[in-house]
Design a binder for these strands. Sequence first.
DNA 1: TTGATGTTCAA
DNA 2: TGAACATCA
Length: 494
Amino acid sequence: MQPPSAPSYSSGLVWFRRDLRTEDQAALYHALTQCQQVHCAFVFDTDILDALPRTDRRVEFIRETLVELDAALRTLSGHDHGGLIVVHHAAAADAVPDLAAALDVEAVYTNHDDEPQAIARDASVRTRLAAQGRALHTFKDHTVFERSEVMTQAGHPYSVFTPYKNAWLKKVDAFYLSSYPVERHAARLAPRPAGHRRPVPTLAALGFEPAGLAQLKIPTGSQGAHQLLADFIERIDKYEDTRNFPAVKGPSYLSVHLRFGTISPRLLARTAHERASQGSPGAATWLSELIWRDFYFQILYHHPHVVTDSFKPAYDAIAWETGPEADALFAAWCEGRTGYPLVDAAMAQINQTGYMHNRLRMVVASFLVKDLGLDWRRGEAYFALQLNDFDLSANNGGWQWASSSGCDAQPYFRIFNPVSQSEKFDPEGKFIRRYLPQLAGLPNAALHAPWKAKPLELQSAGVQLGGNYPLPIVDHDTARQQTLERYAVVKASA
DNA sequence: TTGATGTTCAA
DNA sequence: TGAACATCA
């Protein structure tokens, strides 16, 4: 017997978005338990894709993943034509209600997406479905806790991470971390209706060019995610000791899979939580990173103004550098031509692979804002285009943290020294040499600040400053002073 | 009858 | 996990 609150339909449609898996998928589970027949759809949303350059690793990642998801749904359903309906290249706000009508489903099921644009899109879809007499049911799926699930005693959303984390850990239990048993109900997956049996469209059909995911060895789909997880489980106990060194294989590399939902956040949190409770400090630290993720989702939900403005309004009084010189500095940062090897190597990493080590994200962000005096939003926008794992909430949170304008951000007078960060976190220069081969011949002592190297060292390493490697585009100590002055308006208005 | 123990279910 | 419900001697 169904509880009275759970609806019961003859047919429903699951709209996949950033939850591209069958395992432990909230919307899919609820659809399967509430509908006799369940259809599945994904929309390559032109409202998002049209703004992107024609080569985008993420579009390729999604496409590869959909091919796997389609096969997984077919296997689960047990019939040849079970599985995914791809509505390609349309505005999702139109395509979903249209498809719901074409299939004549009573309800559409999807998972919460709390980015402001997604909220607006989903509200419009809900209205259009309602006009046809159809329901839209949405569920938490991307985080362990969302929206207003973790609140202060006073009933406010947290804006400081540590108390948020403590409350999160206090609230979490085995049930919140348990998986939705999707497989048990897979028999209700509908056969794909005739007229909807097209294969997943090719990249070319979507108007994109190959981005070389295979060469980058970025594993896609649920299978790729599980492969990475298995590898990380072997290393998780060492995570705390290794995670800050970009030359070391310390991170999980699962961020892109969390982005597209090719692995369940609950599964990851459960794995980390179990291991942490058995006394693994690495697992506890990694769990903390997952909690940061929930924290920033929750911040974006409660404070959507962070998309365009500083979390702390006082920081909007800061005057950033503008004009042609600032534009030239920005271009040098983007292209990894700052003359600071760790910054340039990090930018080479993001440009070549779509990934950047987390420590380096902080270093290059601090450099853009506090050495070049450029608006954090310019860096945020560049990351948004380049990062395979780009997520508005975490990216915005990270940039506002670095610029000190965010919730629980570092204080404005804390300015990373790009050379000391380099000496500390890439002491042997392994990471720098990997991405800046033109500097590989320099001794370790000269690698972090080549402009201080002896002429003979440079010569024997084949380095010509201002030639095959740039001179520093700014002097850190001078820039530091200017930044303190630039940020003085914050103190004044506080 | 009732308390002890097992099962289900929630999101 | 833990509340609610079911079963049983």
